[in-house]
Simulated scan of single mutants.
Amino acid sequence: MAAQLRELAQNPPQDANERRELYEAARLLHMSLETPFDAMHRLFWSVYQLPMTQIGVDTGLFKTLAEDPNRHWTLTDLSVDLNVDTKLLYRILRYLASFGLVSESANGTYHANSTTQWLSTPGAEGGTKHYLKTVSPAAHAFPETLSQQGYRNPTSSTDTAFQKAHHTDVSAYSWTPPDPTVLPAFFEFMKSQRASQRNWTENFPVDTLTLSEKEIQDKRALFVDVGGATGHQCISLRQRHPELSGRLVVEDQERVIARADEAELNKHQVESIAHDFFQPQPLKGAKAYYLRNIMHDWPDAKCVEILRHLRDAMAPDSVILIDENVLPDVGASWKQAQKDIQMMSVLAAVERSVSEWHELLGSAGLKVEKIHTYDDDIGDSIIEAIPA
């Protein structure tokens, strides 16, 4: 059986669904075979994986290997090219190869694999720095923070492990890192994440948003992206569905809207409005109010505040489209569970399950009309919300 598994590892399936199913099955097999000694190594020494990845970024190792994936480098050649001590580089490579971040050949040479190539991209480099410098300190402060709070579910974004770790009294989104390279790294990481994610329109009946000719003439807003940053979702909707006529509007805080490319917005007939979603919604009666990854940044009370402003602005046929992860009530995946813990430790926020979404919307005078899941891996879904 071990030989068959090794052969499968050399030739993994190419179908995405089959790969995901096999990946989860292999993970379950791995856990079932793990001894307490194995668990000790997995848990206690995992703290070095992110710092060692950062070293691979800082030395230029991943970029160098990824420039020519077919080249097999000797230790000596890499040492000279990177200007890193040979003995030190050997130990770094040995570690990274053991976790599959680079590949080591039987003859002692090194080359890039798909993970190496990904780690050489600006998005992966940004994510490495963001998680090492911003998230990891909060993770390490999390146990003490929960203990001091009496093990109560965090509800304040200014009283989390993040504040303890970074010695600040402001929320994570208001914090200015002392290292000026951290914030650009975060933005680069977020940009790369958006580019790799599936689009919400893939499994949503977009034609249900169609406006009548009179509504178009009356300038009714078709789609309002609330907290939509620089308008990429509006632009994407216009590009994917040019048959949808009507006003597309992106709203965000003034300092965020100022970063938008006005020429690009105008090209796709997208309007921009400076708006704080904790204030009353200025555009009344829009067909659809859309929020992408807004709710998971805030605890319940703040989410209810945002949603009530939208409910007050809705027309009888308006709908709120909430683009978020929807976790199962039982059997959440490890990806979903660890993301929830991150949001709790940094923002006192939540990745919500089906029942939690129903409860949250009910608190805001809304109800779930339907949930459209478009990415089963992490539960990305569109929650249609209408007045209760």
Rank of each mutant, 00 (worst) to 15 (best):
S171T: 13
I235W: 03
E202F: 03
L327W: 12
D218F: 06
G123A: 15
S236N: 12
P280A: 14
V80S: 13
G123C: 04
Y23R: 13
E351N: 07
E213A: 15
R240K: 15
L237F: 03
T373H: 00
M314A: 10
K267S: 08
R255W: 02
L96I: 04
L310N: 02
A26K: 02
E24L: 10
D300M: 10
S103T: 14
T116L: 09
A195H: 10
P69C: 08
V330H: 07
L101N: 07
H241I: 01
A258H: 07
D81C: 15
K367G: 11
G100A: 04
K339Q: 15
D375S: 06
Q193M: 10
A332W: 13
P299R: 05
L265S: 01
G127P: 03
S245W: 00
R259V: 00
I55M: 13
M314I: 12
I320K: 03
N325Q: 14
F186Q: 14
P51V: 07
L209Q: 06
L61N: 05
V346T: 15
M31Q: 13
T160M: 10
P13G: 07
L22M: 11
K214M: 13
D218C: 02
A26Y: 03
I378R: 01
T158Q: 12
L8N: 00
K164L: 12
E369F: 07
L222R: 05
V350D: 12
L237R: 05
S98Y: 03
L244H: 05
E7Y: 02
P122K: 05
W200K: 00
A138T: 08
W45D: 08
K129C: 02
A66N: 08
A172M: 15
V249S: 02
V326L: 01
I257A: 02
P184Y: 08
Q148M: 10
L101P: 00
A195S: 13
I371E: 00
L132D: 09
A260G: 04
P180Q: 04
H41Y: 08
S363D: 14
H167V: 08
A348E: 08
K370V: 09
Q217C: 06
K284E: 14
P316C: 10
S105E: 09
L8Y: 01
T109V: 05
H309R: 12
L244Q: 02
P154D: 01
Q148N: 12
S363L: 15
S79E: 02
E213C: 05
